[in-house]
Computed example of a mutant assay.
Amino acid sequence: MPDIHIERSHTLGIEAARAVARQWMQKVERDYGLACSYDEGERRDVAQFTRPGIDGSVEVTADSFRLRATLGLLYASFSDQIEQRLQRNLDELLGTSEADDDAYNDKDWL
């Protein structure tokens, strides 16, 4: 099964990072139908996400985001595109990338 690992450093602090993580969760719940849960910790939070064919988590700290996802067979052939989309979504929320328009509707495969 293909695995996706994305890590981003930031200087937001834990409270602002939590806000970004919650925005990301709302976006993927709405746009991709992922079921999400969020557990706050003292120094580290963990957001879990799932739907048939994809399971993963985002670890949120005061200075980093670590996303890990495992794709099932249905999504395996799209792993590069899914990883790029997840990176782009996170970077947009962190304000570290320029938004670019997609020429296709990626909601069909994630």
Rank of each mutant, 00 (worst) to 15 (best):
D39F: 07
A69V: 00
D101V: 10
R88F: 11
D102Y: 12
E42V: 11
S64K: 14
D106C: 02
E59G: 03
G33S: 13
V60Y: 12
D55Q: 04
S57Y: 11
T96A: 04
L71R: 06
T50L: 06
E42G: 06
R30V: 15
R8L: 01
L34M: 13
G33Y: 15
L93C: 05
M1G: 13
L34A: 10
L74R: 07
R43S: 15
E7C: 08
L12D: 01
R8H: 03
E92R: 14
V58K: 11
I82C: 10
T11N: 12
E83D: 08
I6V: 12
T50I: 03
L110I: 12
L93N: 05
L93Q: 01
I4K: 13
I54R: 10
G33N: 11
G72L: 11
R8Q: 07
R18V: 09
G95N: 05
D3W: 09
K107M: 11
Y38E: 04
G33D: 12
C36E: 03
I54E: 09
E29A: 14
Y104S: 06
V58E: 06
E59N: 05
A69P: 07
L71Y: 01
F78T: 04
G72K: 11
D80M: 01
R18W: 08
E42C: 05
R85K: 11
R68G: 08
Q84Y: 11
D3I: 00
E29P: 02
D45C: 12
E15G: 00
A17V: 04
I6G: 06
E59F: 00
E59C: 05
E40K: 11
F65C: 00
F49E: 05
Q48E: 14
L74M: 12
L34T: 03
S57F: 08
V46F: 00
R66C: 10
Y75T: 00
E15T: 14
L86F: 13
D39Y: 01
G95K: 01
N105R: 00
R8I: 03
G56F: 02
R18H: 02
L73A: 12
V58Q: 09
P2I: 08
E92W: 09
I82L: 08
L90H: 01
A47E: 03
T61V: 05
A17I: 02
Q48G: 05
I82M: 07
D45G: 05
A103K: 13
Q87D: 13
D45H: 08
V60K: 09
N105D: 15
T11S: 10
Q81E: 13
F78S: 10
V28G: 06
E42Y: 06
D108A: 11
G41W: 08
G53M: 03
H5T: 12
D101L: 13
I82R: 06
R88Q: 15
A69R: 00
S64G: 09
D31E: 07
Q26R: 15
K107Q: 14
G95D: 04
A62D: 14
E92V: 03
F65P: 00
S37M: 00
G56P: 06
S79E: 12
K27M: 08
D39Q: 15
R85A: 11
M1S: 11
Y104K: 06
Q81W: 01
N105W: 01
R18A: 05
Q84M: 06
